[in-house]
Simulated scan of single mutants.
Amino acid sequence: MNVLPGAEPFAHDGTRTGVLVCHGFTGSPQSMLPLAKRCAAEGFTVRLPRLPGHGTHWKDLNRTRWTDWWSAVDDAYTELAQRCDHIVAVGMSMGGTLATLAAQQHPHGIGGLVLINPAYVMRDIRLKALPVLQHVVPSIASIAGDIKKPGVSELAYERTPLRALQSQRRMWEQVTRDLPQITQPVLLLHSPDDHVVPPECSALLLARVSSADKTEVLLHDSYHVATLDNDAQLIEDETVQFIQRVTAASS
Score class of each variant (00 low, 15 high):
111 G>M: 10
153 S>A: 12
127 L>Q: 04
59 K>S: 04
104 Q>Y: 04
116 I>V: 13
98 L>K: 00
153 S>C: 13
109 G>H: 09
114 V>R: 01
133 L>E: 00
83 R>A: 15
75 D>L: 11
169 R>H: 14
121 V>R: 00
138 P>R: 02
162 L>H: 00
75 D>R: 15
162 L>P: 00
164 A>S: 11
164 A>W: 06
132 V>D: 02
105 Q>Y: 13
169 R>V: 15
84 C>F: 10
116 I>M: 10
115 L>H: 01
65 R>I: 14
70 W>E: 11
84 C>R: 01
95 G>H: 08
141 A>N: 10
154 E>K: 12
96 G>M: 05
137 V>H: 08
61 L>V: 00
69 W>R: 02
136 V>D: 01
154 E>T: 09
93 S>D: 02
117 N>A: 09
77 Y>W: 08
91 G>N: 10
108 H>P: 07
90 V>S: 05
134 Q>K: 05
119 A>Q: 07
129 A>G: 04
62 N>D: 03
154 E>Y: 03
149 K>Y: 10
142 S>W: 08
107 P>V: 12
90 V>A: 06
152 V>P: 04
71 S>E: 10
130 L>W: 00
65 R>V: 15
95 G>S: 05
158 E>N: 12
77 Y>H: 13
101 L>R: 11
133 L>K: 02
164 A>H: 04
113 L>Y: 09
67 T>W: 10
157 Y>T: 03
58 W>A: 05
144 A>W: 05
65 R>L: 15
91 G>E: 02
74 D>M: 11
151 G>N: 07
112 G>Q: 03
168 Q>L: 12
123 R>I: 14
170 R>H: 10
141 A>V: 06
150 P>W: 12
135 H>S: 14
164 A>V: 07
147 I>N: 03
162 L>V: 01
60 D>V: 15
167 S>N: 05
91 G>M: 06
118 P>A: 11
165 L>I: 08
68 D>W: 08
120 Y>V: 06
